[in-house]
Simulated scan of single mutants.
Amino acid sequence: MNRVKQLPNGVWPTMITPFTENNEIDYASLGKLIDWYIERGVDGLFAVCQSSEMFKLSLEERVALAAFTVERSAGRVPVIASGHISDAMEDQIYELQAISKTGIAALVLITNRLASEDESDEVLKNRLEELLQHLPKELPLGFYECPAPYKRLMTPELLRWCADTGRFQFLKDTSCDVEEIRAKVEAVSGTGLKLYNANSATLLETLKLGAAGYSGVMANFHPELYVWLVKNFQQFPAEAQLLSDQLSLASFIERQVYPVNAKYHMMLEQVSSNYLSRTRDASQFHATNRLEVEQLHRLAKHWRSQFPGV
């Protein structure tokens, strides 16, 4: 089992899913990928998320992906997972119950699955109350403000209500707004619910405000730099500011063909053999895109040499 009493602060990569030429999950490459993250000092792994292409995975694949990640991590770091993608609540309950049995340390709920864009927070809260009755009480829960199919941000008030249930420990925040994150951190202060920022540009400022760490796509490129920032921003403020500036500029690579570009980066790291994707057309990833990833790959190596202990 992958259970922990409290999820640790730090860096939680949103894992990508390698595929074979036959469009099946490439478990050999996935095993290397898990080792790659852990060797770079991450504090946990977020499997079966949007970066994992969960909306294009069958339930059987989502369950297998979570279970494999738990097994391969072998207790070295905790693993959390999401994976409820259906519209109907009864179908989501079935999906979440299946994922909950894989040995994960926490089960992450996707906020936009709990209410439609035109429905109120009260509707979302009522559905949460129903959902909590069907999920294992001993399994910690989390939230993911997934951008697709639409981004639904948690309000500080709703977050506090969730924190007071004692069942939530994790929020992957995608607001990209320092003041909004400040309000959320203050709302859950003194509870077991922690906020992990997905945005590079606002990360350093929100760490100063009490954010617990980073959970974003750029941990698929140079997670060790985020690990250094989270662990050392107080002790080395000038160096942390420089690194934050560099990471913010580097994160512009997200605007390419993601997650294809992250998969190409893993090819450069000799983790996988292709950059095939179910969510994006790999043929759109052209020669200049590849060159940009190669340049970032070289830059990250240089940046590592600038910061003690990376």
Rank of each mutant, 00 (worst) to 15 (best):
D26F: 08
V48W: 03
T17A: 07
F55G: 11
Y275L: 03
K172C: 08
Y264R: 03
V271A: 06
V227F: 05
E60Q: 09
V77D: 01
Y37W: 09
E145A: 00
Q92H: 07
C49S: 05
F285I: 08
I80W: 02
V293E: 12
K184S: 05
F252P: 00
R167E: 00
A105G: 05
L114S: 00
D91W: 07
D281E: 14
I253Y: 02
K263Q: 08
P156I: 10
A219N: 07
N220V: 09
E119D: 05
I253R: 09
D43A: 05
L171D: 01
R278Q: 13
G166Y: 03
H222L: 12
T206K: 06
V108M: 00
S200F: 08
L203C: 04
E205S: 15
N220G: 09
L207Y: 12
G75V: 08
E254I: 11
R304M: 11
L291N: 12
K137H: 07
P156T: 08
T165C: 00
K301P: 00
M267F: 09
P237G: 11
V188H: 12
E122M: 07
E239M: 12
H286A: 14
A198Q: 04
A47I: 09
L114D: 01
R167M: 04
P136A: 08
G142L: 04
A201R: 12
L204I: 09
Q235K: 15
D87R: 15
L124I: 04
L7N: 00
G142C: 01
G103W: 01
R62S: 03
A282W: 11
P140K: 01
S120N: 09
F221C: 05
E71D: 14
S175C: 11
A262I: 01
H134T: 09
F19S: 02
E224F: 03
C146Y: 09
A238D: 15
I80D: 04
L159R: 03
S175D: 11
E294G: 07
T206D: 15
E61L: 05
F233H: 15
I25M: 06
N112G: 07
L249F: 07
L153E: 11
V310Q: 05
A106I: 00
F143T: 08
G44S: 12
N112H: 04
I85P: 02
A198G: 14
E145N: 06
D35K: 12
Q284S: 15
G192V: 00
R62G: 03
V123K: 10
W12M: 05
R280N: 12
V123W: 06
H134A: 06
E39F: 02
G103Y: 02
L153A: 10
S272T: 15
A81P: 04
P308F: 10
Y258E: 07
T202L: 03
L243N: 10
V63Y: 02
S251K: 03
K56R: 14
D87E: 15
R255N: 14
A300F: 15
V271F: 10
P136L: 03
H302Y: 11
T202V: 13
